[in-house]
Design a protein around this nucleic acid. Structure first.
Lengths: 243, 243
DNA sequence: GTTATAATACTTGTATACAAGTATACTCAA
DNA sequence: TTGAGTATACTTGTATACAAGTATTATAAC
């Protein structure tokens, strides 16, 4: 195991978290970043000793990560799957699917409160950009979309979001950290996209919505993939087998 | 706790299952059937003693059920949520959403193999109807749709299905058991709907697909709700609070 | 060298013990 | 009767022990 003592997941987001939560979040980041290569075989005992905790919280973590398709249980141990370009595209397929669904509901309701809330989040995002806080920017970016989704009261659409969210979070964290370093100018465009998004919701202009939705995702997706591919290159990505 | 020693979940489906799996499946059935009323407060210890197992498998079960929105964790214990009419509608919203997405992919691929597979499943369904095997019919019904969804190779659409599946399974099991008793004639219509479904996939007739999809769900949904409402009446349904 | 069998070192699933925290009930004072 | 403070009986989170099963390795026979 790599000897870096650095944690990838923001420590401040784990202030009230249990050991299990820490293992889940950090392990996910290590898998998605490629620090743990796909194809690696892991076991409860191995992870437990790596993180210096007992099997109980680890067991919990592996169950979660398996449900997120980050690892695949075998008869003995589990093989790390991680993300591929294809999977990242699939994640955005689902996001477009559910956000389109949500928008169709939103046009039939009062969105004043939502628009105000989104405007607030966007302003906070601008501040995080100004102070180059990649982690908090990622947090607010996710919150922006979660707020939209939460605005329609739909427990199963929300369930999909909640299942997708952790992987998205890791992906966006890694992407934004890189872009704050390498492509700071990206953020003016991201802000503009989000403004467009709010405008589409406010005016209930379906065409504008479709446009901003795809523009937003196409932009993010391309960049996330770039980041991801380079990350994988660094850790000489291993081809996953399809059991 | 009710003194019935009868299990709601088919025992034969649990032949190779762990104690944890048994607790998950049976607990889910008891919640959805209303045997455990919504609003009930449960704890790991309580369920453990009810099922005569230790806390370890129960802990696992409650985590799963929480992710399915069947229970809601509190500071101490968890409150049983269960299903409402609204939530059942929401489940079918999502099914229509993903099956429509899947269909759009299917029209662009070779569906011969899939159509053959679906025809086989449908014939098995007919046999289970003939022999009035409600549980196996439910199994094949779910398999039918899972086969369609699995036909496009999309891990995150499949993930949504997998998240939805257990609750669907319980719901369909309860519904079909009742209909085999009370509305046996329903099944000729169900078979016809599935035939239409296969036809829509084979001919790649989008209009036919939309029609059969909604017809299928509208039919099932109405009936499931009827069943569910009457079940709830039996157990004098408790209004859930929205914490 | 090859193959069959046995020993060993893993693996997961479950039970149990303990620690730390939270709600409830009880006691005592006013 | 009411209220503050404490004791008690819960709760979850984690560590650990053990059982049963699986893969690997070593050993022995040919």
């Amino acid at each position: 195991m790599a000897e870096s003592t650095e944690f990838l997941y923001p420590a401040k987001w784990l202030s009230k978290a249990s050991a299990g939560d820490r293992v889940i979040s950090e392990l996910r980041m290590q898998i998605i970043s490629g620090k743990i290569e796909s194809g690696t075989i892991i076991s409860e005992n191995k992870i437990a000793s790596d993180f210096a905790v007992s099997r109980s919280p680890v067991r919990e973590a592996l169950k979660i990560l398996a449900s997120e398709n980050m690892i695949q249980p075998k008869r003995m141990g589990a093989v790390v799957i991680g993300l591929t370009e294809k999977k990242i595209e699939e994640i955005y397929d689902v996001r477009i699917l559910i956000e389109t669904f949500v928008y169709e509901r939103l046009v039939r309701t009062d969105v004043d409160e939502l628009v105000k809330e989104l405007s607030k989040i966007l302003e906070i995002m601008k501040v995080t950009i100004k102070y180059r806080d990649a982690d908090e920017f990622s947090n607010q970016d996710l919150l922006f979309h979660e707020t939209i989704i939460g605005a329609i009261d739909h427990s199963y659409i929300l369930m999909i979001w909640n299942n997708l969210k952790p992987v998205m979070e890791s992906l966006i964290l890694l992407s934004m950290r890189e872009r704050f370093q390498e492509n700071y100018d990206d953020f003016t465009r991201i802000v503009k996209n989000h403004e467009l998004y709010i405008e589409a919701i406010k005016t209930k202009d379906r065409a504008l919505m479709i446009q901003s939705l795809h523009q937003n995702f196409d932009d993010v997706q391309g960049k996330v993939e770039d980041m991801w591919v380079s990350q994988q290159m660094l850790s000489k990505g291993v081809e996953q087998e399809n059991d």
